[in-house]
Computed example of a mutant assay.
Amino acid sequence: MGRVSGPPVRHGLARILSKQGVCSRTEAARWVLAGRISVDGRVVRDPEFPVVRDRHRICVDGHDLQSPAPVYLMLNKPRGQVTTVRDEQGRDTVYRCFDGAQLPWVAPVGRLDKASEGLLLFSNDTGWASRITDPASGPDKTYHVQVGGQPDAAVLEALVAGIDDSGEHLAARSVRVLRLGSRNAWLEVVLDEGRNRQIRRLLAAFQLPVLRLVRVAIGELAIGDLGKGGWRELSREETEALARPTR
């Protein structure tokens, strides 16, 4: 007997728009509410309206929904910017770095908090972004972290062993000392997953305040000499290497 397939999978209209890489899910909801989106010739104003992408005709401002060409970017995020499109508090966002650039909509691939800086990826390819951020197979992230204090070998080992904090196990894949100052130290910390403020929470458990935190590499992609606030497109070889499973 032949295998019986289930009903087609339906997703909310705003989600479909964002998955196609044309805008963020929040922006898609705004478009729907504004009456800019039609499904099979009828304007829909419900962002959660269920549709099947390959079965329904979706139009934006009267034009068939078309996925833009995929874009893959790296940015050297400055300290003090938040990783979001819009900030309700009016704070400067990472999108300021793209002012004046002729780019389609791109989303951050992972995040860096406001006080952190360094390598941040952007893309409108949601499948690629999911592979990069997958904790089970995505690339390691390497950080250079300046801390107050001078951790000894026992503390470095404890950082790798990890701690339990708020129901989460936080640990570094590896930690080594880059250089020591009179009252502080620079550490290289490698993570194989990224939980919210993971490095700051982990170091705080050992009374090591973070003075500066810079992400310097994702997998084999290093930030190199890219200046603060600078960005560039990734090469095909770089995008493929980042998406290749590492574990």
Rank of each mutant, 00 (worst) to 15 (best):
T93N: 11
D225K: 15
R79T: 05
Q150V: 10
L226R: 13
A28I: 12
G148L: 10
E27Q: 14
D92A: 15
I132Q: 00
V109P: 02
A243F: 11
K19C: 09
S182K: 15
K114A: 14
L221F: 15
Q198C: 03
V106Q: 00
S235K: 09
Q102K: 12
A185P: 01
Y95N: 09
N124R: 01
L213M: 11
D113S: 08
A205Q: 08
R179P: 02
Y72L: 02
A161H: 03
S67M: 03
I218Y: 02
L65F: 04
P7G: 13
G2L: 15
A136K: 15
V51Q: 10
H144L: 02
R183F: 15
T83D: 03
V189N: 00
W186C: 02
A204W: 11
R91V: 05
L112I: 08
K77W: 05
V155Y: 00
L120A: 08
A171L: 03
V160K: 00
V147W: 00
P135K: 08
H63T: 11
V82T: 07
S123K: 05
N124M: 00
L242H: 04
V32I: 13
D225Y: 14
W128Y: 13
H169N: 08
V9G: 12
T84A: 03
L203C: 07
V85I: 10
I199K: 08
G100L: 10
D125I: 00
L121N: 05
W31E: 03
D125V: 01
V94R: 01
R176Y: 00
T133I: 10
D140Q: 02
R200H: 11
E88A: 08
R96P: 05
S130E: 13
R3C: 13
G194A: 12
L187Y: 10
D40K: 07
D113P: 12
P7Q: 15
C97N: 04
L170S: 04
Q102A: 13
E240G: 15
L119E: 04
L13N: 07
P7R: 15
A204R: 14
E88V: 09
G167F: 09
A136D: 11
V39N: 05
S18L: 11
A115Y: 07
R200Q: 10
V190F: 01
L208P: 07
A107E: 13
A34N: 07
T246D: 11
T126G: 13
S130T: 15
W186T: 06
R96K: 09
S67P: 14
E27R: 10
T239G: 10
H11M: 14
R201P: 05
I37Y: 05
W31C: 06
L203W: 01
D125E: 09
N124S: 04
Q20A: 13
A29C: 13
N124G: 03
G138N: 13
H169W: 09
V109W: 02
A161L: 08
I58Q: 07
A161S: 12
T83F: 06
L119V: 05
L180C: 15
P209D: 09
A115I: 13
L75E: 01
D134S: 12
Q20C: 12
D140R: 04
A241Y: 14
E233L: 15
A172F: 01
D46R: 10
G62L: 01
G21Y: 09
C59I: 10
R215N: 09
G2P: 15
L73P: 00
R131G: 06
G229L: 07
L159P: 00
I37D: 13
S123I: 05
L191V: 00
A217N: 06
